[in-house]
Nucleic acid binder design. Structure first.
Length: 490
RNA sequence: GGCCCCAUGGUCAAGCGGUUAAGACACCGCCCUUUCACGGCGGGAACAGGGGUUCGAAUCCCCUUGGGGUCACCA
């Protein structure tokens, strides 16, 4: 039988790196085994559902290159793929358990439950439901209904034997019946099933063979296993992946602002999906060996749950930045243009002469090797992209130096008549300046660079000059000359 | 607190009884370069502690310590 895995988020916010990583592991595992990857929306918590969140999940998953074979927003043979569209399915299954006497209505209020919980917690015991409504008589039930109480439906936990399963990542797991927490709620008082119930029904009906999810779900597993058993179904195989940790060493909280953790944010900063894909795959999993740059197909080929780590992993944004830079360097400026355009166009919006694609490609080529994301392009290249450039202290010092004025004066005079403003042309121009002034090396290049960019460091000077163009170069040289004072040699 | 999970450098991690304990990110130094960046070379930096088992433990077992997850009518 072919393998089927799913990613089943609840649409309560943005896709974050933890969720993306879970989706990715499911995807990689499914594809590795030639099986199906499914996207299901688990929206049983009506209060927390966020409009358009599901759509946003789908968009970001697609952007990352994590495509699903069936599921929400694309359909398939096992739909619907959204919990709230499956309510009647759940209802039928609750009825089935009720007929078997395996569930019962519970009329305890949330306040009453809270009091019991506090008591148990204070006593240091595992919180478990008392079973108070387990054996209510018909009269007692009717009395409660008359009080206006809306019941939940609880699953009757028979605490006679431990629940065990073999986790694909952690090995054998055994839960003593006491550790399950007593009869648990399966349908909320609003008639909507609880996640733990819905996933079981959905996973079975959708023929899910492997459930790969975060470690925080470990304690849910025995309850779900009990449900599978109650229905007489074969449970899927489980694999619990380690948590992604924040700087504090705790499970990454969506409210933790010390770290950028939403996929759409990385998208905004101009990260490449393939870099995030690669990075996330290696967070908590390793193919072994020393390599760490892998294409999507290579990851699919290499992936396996057996090499997933068991301990939590700190999310190292600096390494992601490095990896993204690596991918940037491996793309040509032409390839990057469509992605970089939205960052560059606003940056040059104030320019009198409109910049064309060729200009932007050359600009990208000049700077792409030193940035870690596309949004940094206009920042590192600000001296070429802005019309008001400040002169840094060391650059000013250079300009005030004696030979600077000599070089600049010669440059200006030659430049006025110069027609070839290409990088090669600029090379010849500088050569001529060298010939005329006798200055070379740093004495030649530093003053020119300082004059046109206001700083001593930057990318290739010839190309920078060509990009700036005649008008701007002449304009900036004029201003620089005012600083250094003319010492003509021509 | 109960239940459960985890433990190699600052971080990601290789290692599965015998290694000088890989590699990458970050950091530092040198080289390349007109400069910066890229790149190359080099450096500092780790097996939480204690008991076993064994000729021999980072590797296997136990305990301690530390960290984490979870205890909802949330997922």
């Amino acid at each position: 039988m072919s393998v089927r895995l799913r990613y089943a988020p609840s649409p309560t916010g943005h896709l974050h790196i933890g969720g993306a990583r879970t989706a990715l592991f499911n995807y990689l595992f499914a594809k590795h085994h030639g099986g199906a990857f499914i996207l299901r929306i688990e929206d049983t918590d009506l209060d927390r559902n966020v409009e358009s969140a599901a759509q946003e999940f789908a968009d970001n998953l697609r952007w990352l290159g994590i495509e699903w074979d069936e599921g929400a927003f694309s359909g398939g043979d096992y739909g619907p793929y959204v919990s709230t569209e499956r309510l009647d399915i759940y209802r039928r299954h609750v009825d089935e358990l009720r007929d078997k006497g395996m569930v019962y209505e519970c009329y305890c209020s949330e306040d009453e439950l809270a009091v019991q919980r506090e008591e148990l917690l204070a006593r240091g015991e595992m919180v478990r439901y008392s079973g108070r409504c387990r054996h209510l008589s018909k009269e007692e039930r009717e009395a409660r209904i008359r009080e206006g109480r809306k019941p939940t439906v609880r699953f009757r936990v028979m605490d006679d034997e431990p629940v065990a399963f073999t986790d694909l990542i952690r090995g054998d797991m055994i839960f003593e019946p006491q550790g399950i927490g007593g009869d648990f709620v399966v349908v909320k008082s609003n008639g909507i099933p609880v996640y733990n119930f819905a996933v079981v029904v959905d996973d079975h009906l959708m023929n899910i063979t492997h459930v790969v999810r975060g470690e925080e779900h470990i304690s849910n597993t025995p309850r779900q296993l009990l449900l599978f058993k109650a229905f007489g179904w074969t449970a899927p195989v489980f694999g619990h992946v380690p948590l992604i940790l924040g700087a504090d060493g705790k499970k990454l909280s969506k409210r933790d602002e010390s770290i950028i953790q939403f996929i759409d944010q990385y998208r905004e900063y101009g990260y490449l999906p393939e870099a995030i894909f690669n990075f996330l795959a290696l967070l908590g999993w390793t193919p072994g060996g020393e390599r760490e740059i892998f294409s999507r197909d290579e990851l699919i080929t290499a992936f396996g749950l057996n090499r997933v780590n068991r301990s939590g992993a700190f999310f190292d944004a600096a390494k992601l930045a490095w990896m993204n830079g690596h991918y940037l360097r491996n793309h040509s400026a032409e390839e990057l243009l469509p992605l970089a355009r939205r960052f560059l166009e606003p940056a040059v919006a104030g320019w009198q002469t409109p910049v064309n694609d060729a200009w932007m490609i050359e600009f990208i080529a000049l700077y792409k090797d030193q940035v870690s994301c596309l949004s940094e392009l206009p920042v590192v290249g600000s001296v070429l992209v802005s019309d008001s450039v400040s002169v840094e202290a060391d650059a000013r010092e250079t300009l005030e130096n004696e030979h600077a004025s000599t070089v600049l004066d010669a440059f200006v005079k030659l430049a006025h008549a110069w027609t070839d403003w290409t990088p090669d042309g600029m090379k010849s121009l500088l050569k001529d300046v060298q010939t005329v002034t006798g200055k070379k090396g740093k004495e030649l290049f530093f003053p020119v660079r300082a004059a046109i960019t206001g700083r001593l460091h930057g990318p290739d000077l010839n190309r920078s000059l060509a990009l700036l163009g005649r008008t701007r170069v002449l304009d900036r040289l004029g201003k620089a000359l005012a600083v250094s004072g003319a010492r003509p040699v021509l």
